[in-house]
């Protein structure tokens, strides 16, 4: 059985959010509530400040804390492929999985819309679903969290289960550049303009994702939590990087930054 995983090369990622848009279209996400989000933030203090970004899908962990805390087994680890999926028919909307996910990639469907006005109001549903958008994909499998969500449940990225699960058996990599495989590639991977995303079988040593992880020292986000993500990040430090801290409070104090700048200018003037 495959264990699907993703590699995101942060040195190539431009923060264009094509992945976010593609995922939104593929999975009918609401504006501002993206299964595949790109977080923008800044590092440092003026004038030494950098705009940074960080693409963040669901990590489809090997040892997912969201699965272990679910009191109804509504969220589960699919042994065929290693997907972490939701069964909308079992979810009671307690949100413990959201609380227990260290990556913040789960969404309760009935929260106030992030972007107002709420687009769901313009396309109301008459079959108990959240909304009825004019365009929606044909795939609909509530037991795997695919399709328009019903009310009162938590939703999440499926790794495009509806595409990936149909891939030919034994294939090591799902690459959009291979014509016969491109239909099975997750939407966020397929559209990535700088080709910063790779998708393949982590259980096959010769897969490209495994080679990338080995050759470029792929790292997993918040590995200390023990969740063992199946998404790896590559970073040479040139542009975007895996953020080590999660809050603004950890940024250096302005006075420390000012001292550093003074030291640099003193050194420069002495050298001159």
């Amino acid at each position: 059985m495959a264990k699907w995983g993703m590699v995101i090369d942060l040195d190539k990622c431009t923060g264009c959010q094509a992945c976010t848009t593609a995922c939104t279209m593929e999975n009918n996400r609401l504006p501002g509530e993206h299964w595949q989000d790109v977080l923008f933030y800044h590092e440092g203090t003026y004038p030494n400040v950098k705009l940074m970004w960080f693409p963040r899908p669901c990590m489809h962990c090997e040892n997912p804390s969201c699965v272990s805390v679910c009191p109804t087994k509504a969220t589960y680890k699919d042994p065929n492929g290693g997907f972490v999926l939701m069964d909308y028919n079992r979810c009671i909307g307690c949100k413990y999985c959201q609380v227990a996910c260290p990556y913040g990639v789960r969404f309760y469907v009935d929260e106030k819309a992030v972007v107002q006005p709420d687009i769901r109001g313009a396309f109301p549903s008459d079959d108990g679903r959240q909304w009825d958008p004019p365009y929606k994909g044909p795939q609909d499998d509530p037991s795997r969290g695919i399709g328009i969500q019903p009310h009162g449940v938590v939703s999440k990225c499926t790794f495009c289960y509806h595409k990936v699960s149909k891939a030919p058996e034994g294939v090591a990599d799902l690459d959009e550049d291979i014509p016969e495989l491109k239909e099975y590639v997750p939407a966020c991977v397929r559209v990535c303009p700088p080709k910063a995303r790779f998708f393949g079988d982590l259980d096959q040593p010769e897969s490209r994702v495994n080679r990338l992880i080995a050759d470029q020292r792929g790292v997993r986000l918040k590995d200390e939590t023990g969740n063992k993500p199946q998404v790896y990040y590559l970073s040479g430090g040139a542009s975007a990087s895996v953020p080590s801290l999660r809050s603004m409070a950890a940024a250096p104090a302005p006075e420390d930054a000012a001292d550093t700048i003074n030291e640099i200018s003193d050194t420069a003037s002495r050298s001159a």
Partner: peptide, 21 residues
């Protein structure tokens, strides 16, 4: 809760022993 009535049967019969809830 999102689905309070469902919780009445889904929790006891899930046997989700790994969940504190």
């Amino acid at each position: 809760l999102g689905h309070p009535l469902r919780a009445l049967w889904a929790v006891p019969f899930s046997f989700a022993f790994s969940s504190p809830l």
